[in-house]
């Protein structure tokens, strides 16, 4: 899909901070606010701009949460390849991401649940039992360091001199 430089500019800015209002984006890109709003709407329509979720490190909260990365081997289906089986899997709300992979396995899932038991149950009872799923390998996430290009540990400090020539 070929996008205009305005559309690419909007995506660049929103990918860094989706709270920036259209009026400010317009100034930053040297465009009209109405044009930015229209372009953003078109990007949503084309499902290029899919959502605006905040990036949260839940590990710093009291909420219990377990995450795993699961490698899945499947049998692709005639005429539909991997798409139909991927859909069967991504419809589960525990599944946060699904990727088709090259290499030793076919699909990689990022799965999240509120306890280890729930997650284990999801894998054993739901995922592994789907027709065409041949095998699964579950890797639990122990700690997250960096997510979507952002380091989670601490807010980086500005170490520059306060005034310099």
């Amino acid at each position: 899909m070929t996008l205009s430089s305005l559309e690419m500019g909007i995506l660049d800015i929103l990918s860094g901070d989706s709270r920036i209002p259209y009026a400010q984006i317009a100034v930053m890109l040297g465009a009209e606010e109405a044009a930015v709003a229209a372009a953003a709407a078109a990007l949503e329509e084309k499902a290029v701009l899919v959502g605006y979720p905040a990036l949260i490190d839940w590990d710093k909260t009291a909420r219990e949460q377990v995450q795993a990365v699961i490698e899945v081997k499947v049998t692709p289906q005639r005429d539909m390849g991997f798409d139909a089986i991927a859909e069967r899997i991504y419809r589960f709300e525990e599944v946060k991401a699904v990727y088709l992979m090259s290499g030793a396995y076919d699909l990689m899932l990022e799965v999240q649940a509120d306890s280890m038991k729930r997650l284990a149950g999801f894998v054993a009872q739901r995922l592994a039992t789907i027709e065409h799923v041949l095998s699964t390998a579950t890797h639990f996430v122990l700690k997250k360091y960096k997510l979507n290009g952002l380091v989670l540990e601490k807010k980086p400090e500005d170490e520059r001199l306060v005034v310099s020539p």
Binding site: D158, R160, V162, V163
Partner: peptide, 17 residues
């Protein structure tokens, strides 16, 4: 620089880097 250094929480738009 000496004046700004006293104000620890100032927004600094005074750098050259």
């Amino acid at each position: 620089f000496d004046i700004v250094s006293e104000m620890k929480d100032a927004l600094s738009l005074s750098v050259g880097e």
